[in-house]
Design a protein around this nucleic acid. Structure first.
Length: 821
RNA sequence: GCCGAUGUGGCGAAAUUGGUAGACGCACCAGACUCAAAAUCUGGCGUGGUUCACCCCACGUGCCGGUUCGACUCCGGCCAUCGGCACCA
């Protein structure tokens, strides 16, 4: 029996318990239905859900339920991105054990997620910090190692002092640490990298295939990969026979205008290139450069500085002798670390040359050129020997070809993307499964010996080194090759390694023999719909794409891209500004559950904005949604004895009123179905819920005129349409009406396009494109009749009197426009 | 500087293909019910003009221009906001 008024927490608790018991969302791998993989970006177990989680998982859940009702075999899993620094910081600050802290958070948040009513198959839960998962993270590391895609090298790497660890390039935002926002410095360290740059071109090119991704994300990845095409030009050093300086340039057309060369302070041959009389100044300059933070060094505002090395190169095009300088505006890790300088046609070189009084040669002339000013616009070549007069754009290839023939140049494609640094000097991560043997060097752990377990005898309070190093036994190892005493690597992997493959594990989450079964992964993947925040546009999404391609090349799976469709949801705001703990304007999901119920939260968070846009959470909005839910509930409560689950009626013999009502029901089904399928426009879906509810209230106004079969059709249709959003409410109502099955197992409503159309149309009548009248007319009238109808309108006659009709435009079933002069 | 997204009432927004701009809601206003309030129900709600009122007229989708019988929608040029990249040679 339905009560008179709706009381959410009691009803939701009831169904929570039932679903806990019956596990209605368990997925069958062998179902003959077509598969659909709906995936949310898995959460970090920080302690409590926030509204961003609620929005993310509600969207995915509605998609999953909708697809299930359409007849798909839906995989909708959930897991925990549970390695990472916060657990370790909690250990340091509160003396907690990172594992206990993390698992307690997971337990609490799991309950919160279940209370939200998600249709998740919890038997496939993955938790990245548990050995049954990180064993396979380590195994995958070894596969990449064997493929040559994991390697160790010494390089200047990004270092965050506060987090006491190195960072990947992607984790440095404007020179600051992505996690703690403190300034990043460079350190020369030996670290593990994944060779993501081997896939630069494929990662860029395959963005085209990703038609289900937004342009914003694709552009961000494109910018990050940063492809540019140009040339390598090699310069002989006048004073030295054994050194040559290659430079990378996109402006080979300006080669005749080179007046000096710049190398980065970390340039490999810089010592050879420095003459004794310049040594002291150069060394001092290099020392200073080292001390600068990344932010200072990369600032474009900064005045450029440099010192000459004393040596010179010969420009092979002109024979001109040009000095070599060291300057920190040259970057050691892009191109060759050396730059050719053409002050007349490059603003940076121009500033530098002016400051140090270096010569300039004009080699491009064009519209707007001014003597003594840097010129970077289009033009043709001058002072360039045989190339004079050629358009600068086409001269790039011609000059490079010439250099190639002469043996001092070649075409070169350059990417901004760097290899992914994955070592972390932290405890709470998957240990890198490598040992160092005095005889055999670096050797991967034998696969049958995995996982390399995290030690528990560690001291988290140590400074200046990883807590793992304080373990008494962790470092001790035996060489897998020769059996000698060896040392274990004490670094752990970046948490982004764990999250780069978790979606694959969902296909076969409990497999303890393999990382995942190849057939199962090929069956379920790629993910049909991936949903999460824009903050992962580069980091996680690029790494996952790389992993998929790398694992494909390791013959572990047979597809190229992991996520066919991507929806990046907007932020959740509170009264117009970003929710944050520091502002104290957060909304606690638990409180909403208790006061209004999860259905209200789900309904509201989908209602006001389309998913990709920011959503403004307001107390009045929640209140409004609760009222709407109560309004629906009252309808069913009022008619619960009259609703027929097996209603039937003949469309042909309905009264006009019933006929109109039936049409509105079909329109609602059509609109809801269409709006979910089209970009998941849940805000308009919910508008349709309200319109249908309003239509039902209108229909029941005169109780003597109710056809209860037709009313049942309306109420049961509304119930099913709302069921993906308000999962508890609809289940409660459906079961109270005597249904033996779950509303969530019922198929989606079907609409009849003919019944969704009106028998009459509203003819729009315009004069010179301006609305003059609206006339009710029959469907399907011919153009002449429509024109006649329009001209009969008194409003039209008023508007066209004393004027000449130039022509008349008729759009069948829609509009007549009379053009007059 | 380069690239991408967005711009519609007081607010969130809607508008398959160019064809009634503002659906649906929030807020607000009025009425019904009530001793009263809450809840609920009914109606109104872009701007300006005109009118006792109904009607009616003009204007209105960031700005300027174009195409068209007709433009929120298409084209060209700007402006603003948000986001990404950037001494990347």
């Amino acid at each position: 029996m339905l009560e008179k008024e709706y009381f959410a927490p009691k009803i939701e608790k009831k169904w929570f318990d039932i679903w806990e018991e019956t596990k209605p969302y368990k997925v069958d791998d062998n179902s003959p239905k077509p598969k659909y993989f709906a995936l949310s970006m898995f959460p970090y177990p920080s302690g409590k859900l926030h509204m961003g989680h609620v929005r993310n998982y509600t969207i995915t859940d509605v998609v999953a339920r909708f697809k299930k009702a359409l007849g798909y075999n839906v995989l909708h899993p959930m897991g925990w991105d549970s390695f990472g620094l916060p657990a370790e910081n909690a250990a340091i600050q509160k003396g907690a054990n990172p594992k206990t802290w993390t698992l307690e958070n997971i337990e609490y948040m799991t309950k919160q997620l279940k209370m939200l009513g998600l249709s998740v198959d919890w038997d496939r839960e993955v938790t990245t910090c548990l050995p049954d998962y990180y064993k396979w993270t380590q195994w995958l590391f070894i596969q990449l190692y064997k493929k040559g895609l994991a390697y160790k090298k010494t390089a200047p790497v990004n270092w965050c002092d506060k987090c006491a660890t190195v960072l990947a390039n992607e984790q440095v935002i404007d020179g600051k640490c992505w996690r703690c926002d403190s300034e990043v410095t460079k350190k020369n360290l030996s670290q593990w990298f994944f060779k993501i740059t081997q896939y630069s071109e494929e990662l860029l090119k395959d963005l085209e295939q990703l038609t289900g991704w937004g342009d914003n994300v694709k552009t961000m990845q494109e910018n990050w990969i940063g492809k540019s095409t140009g040339a390598i030009l090699k310069f002989k050093v006048a004073e030295l026979d054994d050194v040559e300086i290659p430079v990378y340039t996109t402006r080979a057309d300006t080669a005749y205008g080179i007046t000096y060369l710049v190398v980065a302070p970390e340039y490999k041959d810089i010592e050879k290139l420095t003459t004794p009389e310049n040594l002291e100044a150069v060394n001092q300059y290099r020392e200073n450069a080292k001390k600068l933070s990344e932010i200072e060094r990369l600032s474009t505002e900064r005045v450029k500085t440099g010192v000459p090395l004393g040596t010179h190169i010969i420009n092979p095009f002109t024979g001109r002798k040009c000095p070599v300088w060291v300057a920190d505006y040259a970057l050691v890790d892009y191109g060759t670390g050396a730059v050719m300088a053409v002050p007349y046609h490059d603003e940076r070189d121009f500033d530098f040359a002016k400051k140090y009084n270096l010569p300039m040669i004009q080699v491009i002339d064009g519209e707007g050129f001014e003597e003594g000013k840097c010129y970077v616009e289009k033009g043709h070549l001058v002072n360039s020997g045989q190339f004079n007069g050629i358009d600068a754009q086409s001269a790039r290839a011609k000059i490079t070809e010439f250099a190639q023939q002469q043996g001092f140049g070649e075409f070169k494609t350059q990417y901004r993307l760097r290899d992914w640094l994955i070592s972390r000097q932290r405890y709470w991560g998957a240990p890198i499964p490598i040992v160092y043997c005095p005889h055999c060097g670096e050797v991967p752990v034998k696969e049958e010996d995995l996982p390399v377990m995290l030690p528990t005898d560690v001291d988290f309070s140590v400074q200046g080194k990883s807590p793992i190093e304080t373990s008494a036994t962790f470092k001790e190892a035996i060489c897998p090759i020769c059996g000698a005493k060896a040392t274990r690597d004490t670094d752990t992997m970046d948490t982004f390694v764990c999250s780069s493959w978790y979606y694959l594990r969902y296909a076969d989450a409990k497999n303890d023999k393999e990382c995942f079964n190849r057939d199962l992964v090929n069956k379920w993947l790629p993910v049909d719909q991936y949903i999460g925040g824009i903050e992962h546009a580069i980091l996680h999404l690029l790494y996952s794409r790389f992993f998929t391609k790398a694992l494909r090349d390791c013959k572990l799976l047979d597809f190229d891209e992991p996520f066919a469709n991507l929806l990046t949801q907007g932020m959740v705001l509170k009264d117009g500004s970003k929710m944050s703990k520091s502002k104290g304007n957060t909304v606690d999901p638990d409180e909403i559950y208790q006061n209004y119920g999860a259905d209200t939260a789900r309904l509201f968070i989908l209602s006001d904005s389309p998913p990709a846009r920011d959503f403004d959470w307001t107390d009045a909005g929640v209140e409004g949604c609760y009222k709407f839910i109560s309004r629906m509930y009252r309808l069913y409560s009022k008619f619960q004895d009259k609703i027929k689950l097996d209603y039937s009626f003949d469309v042909a013999s309905l009264s006009k009123k019933d006929d109109n009502f039936v049409r509105e029901i079909h329109i609602a089904i059509k609109k809801v179905t269409h709006d979910i399928e089209n970009e998941f426009q849940f805000n308009t879906v919910i508008s349709s819920y309200r319109e249908l509810t309003n239509a039902i209230y209108e229909y029941i106004k005169d109780e003597n005129l109710i056809n209860y079969d037709v009313l049942s059709f309306g109420l049961l249709t509304l119930l099913k349409l709302v069921s993906p959003v308000c999962v508890f409410l609809t289940e409660e109502i459906y079961s109270s009406l005597g249904a033996k099955t779950s509303i969530h197992d019922e198929p989606w409503c079907q609409y009849d396009d003919n019944l969704a159309k009106t028998s009459t149309i509203t003819l729009i009548v315009q004069v010179n494109g301006k609305l003059k009248d609206k006339i009710d007319a029959a469907q399907g009238l011919d153009n002449a009749s429509l024109e006649e109808l329009a001209k009969a309108s008194s409003k039209v006659q008023e508007a066209i009197k004393d004027k000449t009709i130039v022509k008349t435009i008729v759009v069948p079933n829609k509009l007549v426009n009379i053009v007059v002069k």
